[in-house]
Amino acid sequence: IRKQWHEDITQDLRNHLVHKLVQAIFPTPDPAALKDRRMENLVAYARKVEGDMYESANNRAEYYHLLAEKIYKIQKELEEKRRT
Rank of each mutant, 00 (worst) to 15 (best):
L66D: 01
L13K: 05
L21H: 02
D52L: 06
P27W: 05
T84M: 06
I71G: 11
I74G: 08
A61W: 05
K73A: 12
A68Y: 14
W5T: 06
D36K: 07
A61N: 14
R14Q: 00
Q11Y: 05
H65I: 01
E77W: 05
Q4S: 13
Y54H: 04
P27H: 14
L67C: 14
E69L: 04
E55P: 04
Y45F: 08
K48T: 07
K20M: 09
D30K: 05
E62Q: 03
R60P: 05
D8L: 06
T28F: 05
L67Y: 05
T10D: 13
A32M: 12
K48S: 07
L17S: 14
I25H: 15
E7I: 03
V22E: 00
Q75H: 07
I71W: 00
A44N: 13
H6V: 01
V18C: 04
Y63D: 02
L21P: 04
N58R: 07
K70E: 08
T10C: 01
I1A: 09
H16Q: 15
P27A: 11
E55Y: 09
P31A: 10
K76L: 09
Q23S: 08
E40M: 09
V18Q: 02
D36R: 05
N59Y: 00
T10V: 03
Q4C: 04
A33Q: 15
R83P: 13
I71Q: 05
N15Q: 08
E79C: 04
I74V: 07
I74N: 07
L67M: 15
V49N: 00
A61K: 11
N58F: 00
T84A: 09
N15P: 04
L78P: 14
R37C: 12
Y54S: 01
Y54I: 02
I74K: 14
K70C: 05
N15M: 06
D30E: 10
R82Y: 00
K48I: 00
H16W: 01
L67W: 02
K3A: 01
Q75E: 14
I25T: 03
E50Y: 00
Y72P: 13
I74A: 14
Y45P: 00
K20E: 07
Y72R: 15
D36C: 05
N15L: 02
I74F: 13
K81P: 06
N41T: 03
K76C: 13
K81H: 05
I25F: 12
V49Q: 07
R47T: 08
R47Q: 07
R37W: 09
E69K: 13
R82L: 07
Y54F: 13
M53Y: 09
Q11P: 10
M39K: 07
L66K: 10
I71L: 09
E77P: 08
A57V: 15
E50K: 01
A57N: 15
R38D: 15
E62N: 01
L66S: 06
P29M: 14
L13E: 15
M39R: 06
E50V: 00
W5K: 11
L67N: 01
V18S: 05
R2V: 04
D8W: 05
R38S: 12
K35L: 04
N58S: 13
D30F: 14
A33F: 08
K48F: 00
Q23N: 13
V43M: 06
L17A: 15
A68N: 15
